[in-house]
């Protein structure tokens, strides 16, 4: 399984970024290898408009099975993500990636 996080930093101890479109980084955990892959999203974050659709396009390229984020995608981004076969778990802001992953594993994160 590939798990994507919207993240404020690049490590396991970084905070989850509450934003989807304007997230600082996208961090991908490959559960098989336990490797973290970091995608810098700062260019999209700095777009005046369309950050939601631009980040959604990246998700289609990365194809994670699961997304763990904060508030959850806005309306436009949600529409864009509709056809991507990806489960979205929300309300993980205030957690680190590690904590959010543990909560996800124990089934205590809310699924959209």
């Amino acid at each position: 399984m590939k798990i994507a996080f919207t993240a404020a930093g690049t490590t396991w101890d970084s905070q989850i970024d509450s934003r989807f479109g304007r997230t600082e980084f996208i961090v991908i955990l490959n559960e098989e290898t336990q490797q973290l892959e970091v995608i810098d999203n700062s260019a999209v974050k700095n777009e005046a408009h369309g950050a939601g659709t631009a980040t959604a396009q990246k998700m289609y390229e990365l194809k994670p099975d699961v997304l763990i984020t904060g508030n959850g995608p806005g309306d436009t981004a949600a529409t864009a993500l509709k056809n991507l076969n990806m489960k979205i778990f929300v309300d993980a802001h205030n957690l680190t990636l590690q904590q959010a992953y543990n909560s996800y594993k124990s089934g205590s994160l809310k699924q959209l």
Binding site: S18, R19, R22, H49, G70, N71, G74, D75, H93
Partner: peptide, 11 residues
């Protein structure tokens, strides 16, 4: 619109 959604992030 978008600015409001943005002001809600993390609230």
């Amino acid at each position: 619109g978008c600015p409001v959604v943005s002001s809600l992030a993390g609230a």
